[in-house]
Design a protein around this nucleic acid. Structure first.
Lengths: 254, 254
DNA sequence: TCGAATTTGTGCGTATGTATC
DNA sequence: GGATACATACGCACAAATTCG
């Protein structure tokens, strides 16, 4: 018996620091106690505080600067909101609209190119493996900081003969999938989205500038042609969990 | 100058192990190198490998068994799927229906009680602070393992005079919000959900039996009365990120 | 059944490189 | 440029758990 399950000191220290941050006793950017201060306060050696900080750094709550100290990471909370209602036509991409509404300077980078459908993409677009697709990578920035990365695929035989073949070039640049498809007479309606929460991969963490194990929201989105039910675009979207909230559905309109 | 931003050794080691897992070189359940083996292979002390493993454990990729070693966690990820279409009436709670479809033995625990609306709950239900609410906590289990926890609030003045006042007692136990509201003549339609990804709190991790920093999907759900637009139920739902995918929308029906 | 070897978990002291003043 | 404070990494030691002969 006697399985008291004593929590180790380094977890107690980490908890104490975590609550100080959560309660606001330590604001964003504030300097946390140094390791020697921690060891004085809690009575343990420096290693205990060291491990506690390692945990908080991995969780993304704290930033450590060698030689300087540990600092509360600016959470920059969920200021931005990701809605999924139908956007107004002719106002730019949905993300850009959204960012503008929030008073944020939004911009994005992209690169497009034709590619052959991999097994996964072919299954999602319901086309044969190896068929031509238009592949585009996006990186969205808010006030210069990357907040969202996306990768999209469209079957070439839908847009291939049109000016919109390149999603982000020509007269139809940056207007979003729904509007672009409307140009070729395709009504895409509301997409199907599968949402899951996971930790960022190392590559994503580097692109998004977040902690190596920061939680992200991974959305698999597919647009369908309302007329014949065919998939016309599918995308993998990765959002920084700390900065985005995705809203689905809307209140009944009276 | 010289801001080379060298990645710390423990991240390099963690990265190497991560790719070994991702590429399938190490299958699920396989044993990972011991700390002494790691220190031999990479040339760093055991502390480096220790911290690398700590990261992978927090990410949920690895399980550590003291005295035995580190093992690749069986991902078994997308076994369960969380859809959000309208469920069939009279078939039990949506979650129970879903689990049954997947061939999983589902069960749930709950406890209800009246409470006074906190500031946050009052705002979400659009009632005065301190008004009476029915507060229920749920824990859903799949094959005995907890996979989802939820907390819901309903204004008492909607269901107060009815048999359904206790969500999980009496003749209307376990039938889900939509059906229960239908009993008192309220059509709730499709709820509004706000999804975000974050790490589990310590309490949640204990309830869900997951790693202390495991990614979870936190959903804020609110049902509205279709007739007058009033909120009739709001809930905080926490899903284990590794086991649930939430789907929104549906393909066009031809 | 028991004991030895291995392995992880945890904490200590210390050397080293870096940042700050 | 020098002194101080700081984080990082390392080697080591002990405890607890597991495995295996």
């Amino acid at each position: 018996m006697t399985d008291t399950e004593a929590t180790p000191p380094y977890l107690q220290v980490a908890d104490a620091l975590r609550t100080r941050i959560a309660t606001g006793a330590l604001e964003a950017g504030a300097r946390l106690p140094s390791l020697t201060e921690l060891s004085d306060e809690f009575g343990y050696s420096g290693t205990v505080g060291q491990r506690a900080y390692a945990l908080l750094v991995d969780e993304g709550l704290v930033i450590s600067r060698p030689g300087a100290g540990h600092y509360v990471r600016s959470q920059a909370a969920p200021t931005v909101m990701f809605r999924r209602q139908r956007v107004r036509a002719g106002q730019g991409s949905p993300v850009a609209q959204l960012l503008a509404e929030q008073g944020v300077v939004g911009s994005w980078q992209h690169e497009s190119g034709t590619d052959r459908a991999s097994e996964a993409v072919a299954a999602r677009l319901e086309i044969p493996v190896g068929d031509g697709v238009m592949h585009t990578r996006y990186t969205y920035l808010a006030n210069g900081e990357p907040v969202q990365i996306a990768e999209s695929w469209e079957p070439l035989d839908i847009t291939g003969g049109s000016l919109i073949v390149l999603p982000e070039a020509g007269p139809y640049a940056g207007i979003g999938v729904a509007d672009r498809m409307a140009v070729v007479g395709v009504d895409v309606g509301v997409p199907v989205e599968q949402v899951r929460a996971r930790t960022a991969t190392r590559a994503e963490a580097q692109q998004l500038g977040c902690a190596p194990a920061a939680p992200v929201m991974a959305i698999m989105r597919t647009y369908y042609d309302q007329a014949n039910g065919r998939p016309v675009e599918t995308a993998d979207i990765v959002l920084l969990g700390s900065r985005w909230v995705s809203e689905y559905g809307h209140r009944p309109q009276l």
